[in-house]
Simulated assay, not measured.
Amino acid sequence: MNSVGTFVFDSIKPFVLKEANTNIRNDVNKEVKKLPQRFPNSISPFDQLIAELRRKVRDKGFDPYKVQDYNSSAGVFDIYLTHTWLYGVASFHRTKDIKFELRNKTAHMLVEVGTQRLMGTTNWDISFVAGMLSRAGTASFTVEYIRVQANASQSLDTSQHPNLDDIQVELGNIQVRFDGLGTVDYVIELAVNVIPNLLRYQIMDALEKPIRLKIQEALDQVNVERIIKENAKKLDSGKGLEGLEFL
């Protein structure tokens, strides 16, 4: 008699677990099928965030963007690029699918954002042997694209803030058109050959560090515990994904 209970339980356990697994799977699948209707792939939450960031970039007057002056030495030549402006930086958008991965109790996210073709202008000045001979002029240029790839992570310890692990900035091909060159001599030839590369260095130096700081600054303001608690209440109330708030 004492063994009857255990015998009965062991006999019906596989049947009960199988039924529970089937019912739970069916219920979860039904809810998952509803998600695309509430949250279409064409307007993901990250794309909505990107659209809001574009608006903020324009509102704060960062498009056009003034690049810091740049100077470099090439042998006996000193080259200066001043009053450099970049137009179209607010055209950035998501260029690839967002990738998530869980490793060592940490969630990793890889995001890539890129711009459309950018336009720019700059003033250039080349001096030879401490100013004994110099040439100056203006130039307009195009940058095929700027791409920013960011790798961020979030520990499963929700008391910690997200962290920016790595950032890569890539510039597309740069084409320069010089205005008012006048007589073509070896100084002008040097400008034509050197200035496109200097513009690349100038733009990279001006963008990479501020972008890194701004992203980490935004991540430091994310309170993961608060987000989880607030959104958990909304999910329990039946509002679905459209009611969730991440920022």
Rank of each mutant, 00 (worst) to 15 (best):
F77Q: 08
R226H: 08
Y145N: 09
N151E: 00
T82P: 09
N23Q: 13
T115A: 12
Y80K: 06
M132N: 06
G238T: 01
V113F: 11
N223S: 12
S3K: 10
E208N: 02
L53D: 12
W85A: 01
N193T: 00
L35V: 14
K66W: 01
M204C: 14
I203F: 05
M132S: 01
T22F: 12
L102E: 14
S3R: 14
L110N: 09
F62E: 15
Q202H: 01
R94V: 06
T84H: 05
L244H: 00
E31D: 06
L35G: 02
V169E: 12
D78P: 03
V222S: 13
P196Q: 08
D69I: 03
V32K: 15
V148M: 02
R94F: 08
R58C: 02
A130R: 12
L35N: 10
V28W: 03
L156E: 07
Q37E: 15
G182K: 05
A139L: 02
R58Y: 04
K105M: 07
V67Y: 07
T6S: 04
E217D: 15
F7R: 11
V222I: 14
L81N: 00
V111G: 01
A107Y: 14
N104D: 08
I195N: 13
L235D: 14
L164F: 01
M204A: 09
P36T: 14
D47Q: 06
F128I: 11
A51S: 13
R135L: 12
S140D: 10
Q48I: 14
T95Q: 09
S237F: 15
S73I: 11
H108T: 08
K33I: 02
E101G: 09
I188S: 00
V129M: 06
I24P: 08
D97P: 00
G120A: 01
N163A: 03
K18Y: 10
M204Q: 06
I79C: 09
R94A: 13
D125Y: 06
V4Q: 03
Q168E: 01
K229E: 10
K60L: 15
P196K: 05
K214S: 15
P36D: 01
Q160P: 07
S42D: 03
A90Q: 07
K60V: 13
T158R: 08
T6P: 06
I126C: 02
K34E: 12
I228G: 04
F15N: 09
L156I: 09
N71W: 13
R135A: 10
V32C: 13
A232H: 14
G120W: 07
E31A: 12
V129W: 10
V16A: 06
F46V: 11
A218Y: 05
L241M: 03
Q160R: 03
S127Y: 10
V113G: 01
K56A: 15
T6N: 00
G240Q: 05
V176D: 09
A191M: 10
H108Y: 15
